[in-house]
């Protein structure tokens, strides 16, 4: 595997291998000295065209725990603000000897373009409304460690699926790993032609009793002013996860959220902070999963 651009590129064996390696990496994170020499002398560039504290720090921690040299390149205050194109930036990184570029970009497909212009590996850390593969992998990792399996699991993904890169990557990966996915949200925000085998539902209450996992998606502020739904209040009432709805789920069911949350909008504090919520675990697991991805792309091939 050269690049990680889309979860569609992962077959079940490769995806499972990443999760298995992540389990080993997690044991490193539990040690007093949280470091492996695997990527010593290799350079990982974090190329971030969008602000993302969580993902950037997670990738940075992952690369550092594998002893790679990390360069953080943020579009703000950089040559990008002076009008440098992605292609020219790519050539600059190439000239500096980047072995891997982790890219976060507001335009869908930017990592695919970048992969044409650099010789190193490209890791998609979220591109526009397209995909966020490492998020899906850490979600799968979290589900597997909580539920013990992925095959046959029923996962409901709730909210703004249309604009969600997290949802797209999850749908593809969960399909590959044998989970059953139901997309839930107002019809304005749920695409009906995602190609993967998914169910679509508009009534959250009807879905909850069968859901082993409920994944809540963040609702962006701009959706509220563009007639996707009438008001934040109506959205919360129909699609927000509160305590009463949590109790409709099976007793073993878990609640996930990729963060950052709109507390009180798509999820109430009661649910977000409950023991059934995996939100903090997801962040922890993110580092292990990203270590596994960097290891496979950079170390494993040697």
């Amino acid at each position: 595997m050269k690049h990680l651009l889309s979860t569609a590129d992962l077959d079940a064996a490769t995806a499972t291998e990443i999760l298995d390696i992540a389990t080993e990496m997690a044991s490193v994170s539990g040690r007093e000295i949280k470091k492996l020499p695997t990527l010593r002398g290799r350079t990982v560039v974090n190329l971030f065209y969008e602000d993302s504290t969580r993902t950037r720090i997670s990738f940075e921690a992952a690369a550092k725990r594998l002893s790679a040299d990390v360069i953080n390149f943020s579009a703000k205050g950089s040559s990008v603000e002076k009008g440098e194109s992605l292609k020219d930036t790519a050539w600059t990184l190439q000239a500096m000897g980047a072995d891997a570029v982790v890219i976060r970009h507001p335009a869908s497909g930017a990592p695919h373009r970048l992969a044409n212009w650099v010789t190193g590996s490209v890791l998609n850390a979220g591109d526009g409304t397209h995909e966020h593969p490492t998020q899906a992998l850490l979600d799968a990792y979290t589900m597997r460690s909580r539920m013990g399996r992925l095959d046959g699991l029923h996962v409901a993904i709730v909210g703004d699926v249309l604009h969600s890169r997290v949802a797209r990557s999850n749908v593809l990966l969960l399909n590959t790993l044998g989970a059953k996915v139901t997309l839930v949200g107002p019809p304005t925000l749920v695409p009906t032609d995602l190609n993967a085998s998914v169910q679509v539902a508009y009534d959250l209450d009807a879905v909850l009793p069968q859901a082993d996992v409920v994944m809540m998606l963040r609702v962006q502020k701009e959706r509220m002013t563009d007639s996707y739904f009438p008001s934040a209040r109506e959205y919360s009432r129909r699609y927000g996860l509160d305590g009463a709805r949590l109790r409709r789920m099976p007793a073993h069911g878990i609640v996930m959220h990729p963060g950052p949350m709109n507390r009180g909008m798509e999820i109430t504090p009661e649910v977000a902070d409950s023991p059934r919520s995996t939100i903090v675990e997801q962040v922890t697991n993110g580092v292990s999963v990203r270590m596994a991805c960097l290891y496979l792309l950079l170390g494993g091939a040697r």
Binding site: S108, G109, D127, G128, T129, H130, E131, R165, R168, P191, D193, L194, N195
Partner: peptide
């Protein structure tokens, strides 16, 4: 809008 609205745009995340 970026491309034809359909299954491909849904998959590619292009408006």
């Amino acid at each position: 809008a970026q491309m034809h609205e359909g299954d491909v745009s849904a998959r590619l995340g292009l408006t």
